[in-house]
């Protein structure tokens, strides 16, 4: 190891530089703005204002949690059945799951407006049979739909990966010892897929909680989440300090949520080598 230490340093250098520039430096800047006022002097004013946004934080986490739960409920059975189909079908399905990601996130979200809007695809179809127009857009439901739609692949992929890798003999062993189909899932498949569930939750929950684009386009100003508030501080209110303080709190809250999640899945992570896709 010692002989290659210089080579290793050279290989590692770009990554360390990258991390310093784009991870550590922004974090320090967030911290700096959060703990200063507009003149640059140390101040806790911004941090003190955060209390006013408690409701928004709770709302954001609730929306994130609901969207994550719905994604999990949709993705889990899908991943399970997919993992038990023929290899060719699996490959094609995984590609189809990823296909929407080839398009811009903005376009994908925007296209829902043309589907859900008052003169959108659904309402014009319903109009022909004398129903509606229904208020499908600009409400909480549309926001949740947008979150689930956009982030579902990030739930499916880790679940599918862990289920496809699961040893068939473990399932056979469970059947052999007396497990019916549902018991196999409850006693073997589910516990062994916990690391996949944990990665899926992480990858859906975090972007859901901090999103602002989905709420703006599909919520139509009716749903104001913490991402919107932070964006407004930077873009319109020009209050970088409050925006940074809110971001800091959001980060801490997400870290706490993930910490709780890891606490419950840690022991299984060890056993399975912690699959994070």
């Amino acid at each position: 190891m010692k002989r290659s230490s210089l080579a290793q340093k050279i290989i590692n250098a770009p990554y360390i530089l990258w991390a310093a520039l784009f991870v550590i430096a922004p974090l320090i800047m967030v911290l700096y703005y959060a703990l200063t006022d507009s003149t640059g002097a140390f101040s806790l004013d911004s941090v003190k204002q955060i209390g006013d946004y408690g409701g928004t934080f709770i709302l954001s986490i609730s929306y994130g949690a609901v969207a994550t739960l719905i994604s999990l409920v949709i993705a889990y059975p899908f991943a399970y059945f997919l993992a038990h189909t023929k290899a060719n079908f699996q490959r094609m399905s995984v590609m189809l799951v990823m296909l929407p990601m080839w398009m811009s996130f903005l376009i994908r979200t925007y296209s829902w407006i043309t589907i859900l809007g008052e003169s959108g695809v659904i309402n014009s179809a319903l109009g022909k049979i004398g129903i509606g127009p229904l208020p499908l857009l600009n409400n909480g439901g549309a926001v949740i739909l947008g979150m689930v739609y956009n982030f579902l692949p990030y739930m499916i992929l880790p679940l599918y990966t862990i289920m496809a890798k699961m040893d068939v003999r473990l399932i056979e062993a469970a059947q052999d010892l007396g497990c019916g189909k549902l018991q196999v899932i409850r006693k073997v498949v589910f516990p062994l897929s916990v690391p996949g569930i944990a990665s899926g939750i992480t990858m859906v929950f975090v972007p859901c909680v901090s999103t602002f684009y989905i709420t703006q386009k599909l919520g139509g100003g009716q749903v104001n989440l913490i991402g919107d508030v932070i964006e407004a501080q930077f873009q319109t209110a020009n209050n970088y300090n409050l925006g940074a303080a809110l971001s800091l709190v959001l980060m801490v809250m997400i870290l706490i949520c993930l910490g709780v999640l890891n606490y419950f899945t840690d022991s299984d992570d060890e056993v399975n080598g912690g699959v994070l896709v």
Partner: peptide, 20 residues
């Protein structure tokens, strides 16, 4: 008759013990 209803049990080649 499915495996889980049979009075036979298997000892698998690579043990297939439940890792969790």
């Amino acid at each position: 008759v499915p495996a889980y209803k049979r009075q036979v049990n298997t000892i698998f080649q690579r043990y297939a013990l439940f890792p969790h």
